[in-house]
Design a protein around this nucleic acid. Structure first.
Lengths: 151, 151
DNA sequence: TTGAGTGCAAACGTTTTGCATTGTG
DNA sequence: CACAATGCAAAACGTTTGCACTCAA
């Protein structure tokens, strides 16, 4: 039996920060709190602008560096869709998933498939390739947008 | 029975150009000829620099616009690996495939899996999502690089 | 007190556009 | 001859860094 103990993201942040000899700052906590609440896939710039309203004086560079740190810790995942711009989603406590991205409205539907993952693992093994992470994205029309077009 | 008639890429280029009311230029033909020969995944800049040697006076913008056109025509495919930089590979006459990318040496191994594609189609159908194209990439260590590390 | 963290502005690399000129159809 | 295509240079864009100042430990 497998038990997952999900602690408060802020506690994980503090713990990771301490174990690396880093420092706990208001900015870092603010960014984590914001991302934990904000659903969706946000660019650095979007995170920056949204937080900047609450906390004037916040710098772009801090968002950039913090988001990078959070990615290392595993609190967020970076996803890059067709436009090539890096986006971030809160990942902690959420199972892995991939995306179907609507090229018209931009919505990102999540999906996951253990069967696909198994096939993937088998393919990699056949090539002696050690998978660290993967990305599987389908681009097309979501049900809403496909409906509009066909009318 | 399915028959694929693969014509010379240059003929397809000329045909596509004519049907769109565009013009056939030496630059466009040169870029297609180069890409058809060059194996691998090249950035705009790499294509530009390589061709510039043969054909001085060639402009970056022409490469940019031509590569975009070729993507629409279906002669090349754009792939974007972890670094976020767009790369292009000659696609015409080659079966669809995805990639395993080594994060150490950057090599991109190709793979394809009809089984995965079927599962994918099924998942999309369940959401009424119309897939236009997809991208499936595994990042990790190739056999060579994994071997070096473990020594 | 000390050095990690911050905010600003500027550097960076890539992608994209404006515009005058060239050349295909 | 018209107008698509080109080449150049510069703008735009997202990302990253240098540096002086600040603040958590």
């Amino acid at each position: 039996m497998k038990v997952n103990i999900i602690m408060d993201p802020l506690l994980l942040l503090r713990q990771s920060i301490k174990s690396r000899g880093l420092k706990d700052t208001a900015q870092r906590e603010g960014i984590v709190r914001f991302l934990a609440g904000a659903k969706g896939h946000l660019t650095q710039e979007e995170i920056f602008k949204a937080l900047r309203e609450r906390e004037p004086g916040l710098g772009r560079a801090t968002v950039f560096r913090t988001v990078k740190l959070l990615e290392e810790i595993g609190l967020v995942t970076r996803v890059t869709f067709a436009d090539g711009v890096a986006r971030y989603e809160f990942a902690y406590g959420r199972p892995h998933h991939d995306h179907m991205i609507c090229v018209t409205c931009g919505v990102a539907l999540e999906f996951s498939s253990p069967a696909i993952e198994r096939l993937q693992t088998r393919l990699a093994k056949a090539r002696n390739f050690k998978v660290r992470w993967h990305r599987h994205e389908m681009f097309g029309l979501c049900a809403r947008c496909a409906g509009k077009n066909s009318s």
